[in-house]
Nucleic acid binder design. Structure first.
Lengths: 98, 98
DNA sequence: TTACAATATACAAAAATTTATATATAATTA
DNA sequence: TAATTATATATAAATTTTTGTATATTGTAA
């Protein structure tokens, strides 16, 4: 069987983006809000600003979210609507195994 | 908004199980083979036995796979068929963004 | 029994990740 | 222009993860 490892490295990168509670909470917020500025995300999650910025950057580099600048504000939003689907599928997996 | 962090910690644990190329390759093999013994997985992936055992253990602890013992052999298999679905959904996300 | 084969576990070094503090930058307003 | 606000970046300590070597365990067969 052809185990094209590179393909699975790329996939693993995307799964890694999801593999952190803070990032999942950010994705949850973004999936319910069309777009959000960093300050609003900080307010909701009550974590230090550089921590949030760091996680936003990881999500952005993974291709899951993008940013649109408006003055000083930076509004982040989810790129692919399937992301919501991945999250809810994962919620089902949890529901059935725990 | 209620950001029940514990829920996202549990979800992150499951995403973490997927977030490694070796584990993704193991899941891919198991998703195509009903069940496989460790020696067969080692043969396919050409990695040291303790490395494979370690990853199998992570997948087992995450609840994604289980083992059934047959003599000296240990046969691993996927628990939830939705796992195949998660992987193929992720493959689609890759396909569209890259 | 003893030897062997399949697998698990212990363990340690290397690498990657998370978090927070300090600092920089850039846009806006006074 | 100076001060302020929103955000990014640098960086370092702490933690977690990955990998491989050595070793233990367990079941089978001689």
């Amino acid at each position: 069987m052809d185990m094209n490892e590179n393909k699975y490295e790329i996939m693993a990168e995307i799964f890694k983006a999801f593999a952190d509670p803070t990032r999942l909470m950010i994705l949850k917020l973004l999936s319910e809000n069309e777009s959000m500025c960093v300050c609003k995300i900080i307010e909701e999650l009550k974590k230090p600003q550089p921590t949030i910025s760091h996680h936003l950057n990881i999500l952005k580099k993974s291709g899951l979210i993008r940013a649109r600048k408006k003055g000083t504000w930076n509004h982040y939003y989810i790129v692919d609507p399937k992301i919501k689907y991945i999250i809810s599928t994962m919620e089902n997996v949890i529901g059935e195994n725990k």
